[in-house]
Write a protein that binds this DNA or RNA. Structure first.
Lengths: 94, 94
DNA sequence: GAGGTATCTGAGAGTATAGTAAAATACTTA
DNA sequence: TAAGTATTTTACTATACTCTCAGATACCTC
């Protein structure tokens, strides 16, 4: 069996980014559509600072996009593949 | 939006277990069928000890099963959901 | 431009994870 | 039962992750 090291690296980085309770919840929440940081924060128990850091992790992993509007930042799922992955997770493991 | 904390915890634990290059490769390899530790070790560069530890992680996360035969341990994917997840990963991200 | 709101960044401490090497266990065969 | 093979466990070290707190930005309104 032959592995494409780069792809393995890429997929595991992606998985790692998703593999955290707060980030998983953020992604579930974003399945509903675009949300700003305050809206996200209200869903969970953590601080804005902490959530902002998790959002950065997701953004650097190319999982979510952000858009600025006045002094709000709106975050959203980046593409369909992530949505599909989340749905697979939900269907098979939730 | 309401989250089932326990399920989130479960899914993220699962993701965390998968989110490592060696473990990802082990799972890919096990998609072919049952393998023993030596066979797995020969696929990658790491030591048997290290691989054994990763197998333990996967086993504790309920992702793989093992079966003893003489002094060999045979490992295999535990169920269909894992297979489906791996396929989704392959299709959408590889 | 002063004050307020929303978000981000950086430092520090605590915890978790990964890899390596050495010793331990379990089984087989001579 | 001694020696050999396959695998696991333990101990240790290094690195990475997570959270909290204290500023720092950016933008808006008065």
């Amino acid at each position: 069996m032959k592995f494409n090291e780069q792809q393995i690296e890429l997929v595991t980085e992606l998985m790692k980014s998703i593999a955290h309770p707060i980030r998983m919840k953020i992604l579930c929440f974003l399945m509903e559509g675009e949300k700003n940081v305050g809206e996200i924060e209200q869903q969970f128990g953590s601080t804005i600072s902490n959530i902002s850091q998790h959002l950065t992790v997701l953004r650097k992993a190319n999982i979510i996009d952000r858009r600025k509007e006045a002094n709000f930042m709106f975050y959203s799922l980046k593409d369909n593949n992530i949505l599909k992955l989340m749905e697979t997770l939900k269907n098979n493991f939730c």
